[in-house]
Deep mutational scan, measured.
Amino acid sequence: RKESAFKSMLKQAAPPIELDAVWEDIRERFVKEPAFEDITLESERKRIFKDFMHVLEHEC
């Protein structure tokens, strides 16, 4: 699924995404990734990013 691929892309980011990361600041790192391009709505990208950050916070 496209959403899973997007989350995997975020999870495998190098360097890892920090807990205090803001979408607008890290977005540039992913613009050339196929998983990024597959999610065409920016609002959807932000939503998935927020979900990812929520999970990340609870893993720590």
Rank of each mutant, 00 (worst) to 15 (best):
E28D: 09
E3R: 03
W23D: 00
L10P: 01
S43D: 08
R45Q: 03
R29V: 04
I17P: 03
A35V: 08
E33I: 06
W23P: 01
M9E: 01
E24P: 04
C60P: 15
R27H: 02
D51T: 10
K50Q: 08
K2V: 04
K11C: 11
S4A: 15
R27D: 01
L56M: 13
P16N: 07
K2M: 08
L10A: 00
M9H: 00
A5C: 15
D25R: 08
E33T: 11
E57I: 07
E59N: 14
R29D: 03
A5V: 12
E18T: 15
E33V: 06
E59H: 07
Q12G: 07
E28K: 15
E37F: 05
D20W: 13
R47I: 10
D38W: 07
F36T: 01
E57F: 06
E44Y: 04
A13F: 03
E18Y: 08
H54P: 06
D20Q: 06
L19Y: 11
I39S: 00
I48M: 14
K50I: 11
D25Y: 04
E57P: 08
S8C: 15
D20F: 09
L56W: 10
D25P: 02
A35C: 06
K11G: 09
A14M: 07
E28Y: 11
E59R: 09
R27Q: 04
I48D: 02
A5F: 12
K7Y: 07
K11Q: 11
K46F: 07
M9N: 00
K32G: 14
K32E: 07
R27G: 03
F30E: 01
D51E: 13
K2D: 05
I17W: 02
A35L: 02
K32D: 09
A14C: 07
K46M: 06
C60H: 10
V31L: 10
Q12R: 06
K7T: 09
Q12M: 09
E28S: 12
A14P: 00
L10Q: 01
A35Q: 09
D38I: 06
K50R: 12
P16W: 03
S8V: 14
L10V: 02
H58Q: 14
M9Y: 01
T40I: 12
E44F: 03
K46G: 05
F36P: 00
K46W: 04
K7V: 10
E18W: 07
D38Q: 08
H58N: 11
M53K: 12
K2I: 06
R1M: 15
A21H: 05
E24C: 07
A13H: 04
V55I: 14
F49V: 02
V55D: 13
R29W: 03
K11N: 09
S4M: 15
V55T: 15
I39H: 01
F6P: 00
F30Y: 04
R27C: 05
D20V: 05
L56E: 10
D20S: 11
H58A: 12
S4Q: 15
E3Y: 04
E24F: 03
R1C: 15
I39P: 01
V22L: 08
R27T: 02
K7C: 09
E42A: 01
D38V: 11
C60T: 08
E33D: 15
K32I: 05
P16F: 06
L41G: 13
E59Q: 14
A13N: 00
I48A: 04
A13G: 04
L41V: 13
E37Y: 11
E3I: 07
A14I: 08
L10W: 00
K32A: 10
R45D: 00
K7G: 04
F36M: 06
L10K: 00
Q12H: 10
E24N: 06
K46Q: 08
M53C: 10
R47N: 09
E59L: 05
E37M: 13
E28F: 06
V31D: 06
A14W: 07
R29K: 07
I39G: 01
A13P: 00
P15S: 04
A21E: 09
E18G: 14
P15G: 03
R45M: 02
R29G: 05
F49M: 03
V55E: 13
P15H: 09
K50F: 10
S8R: 13
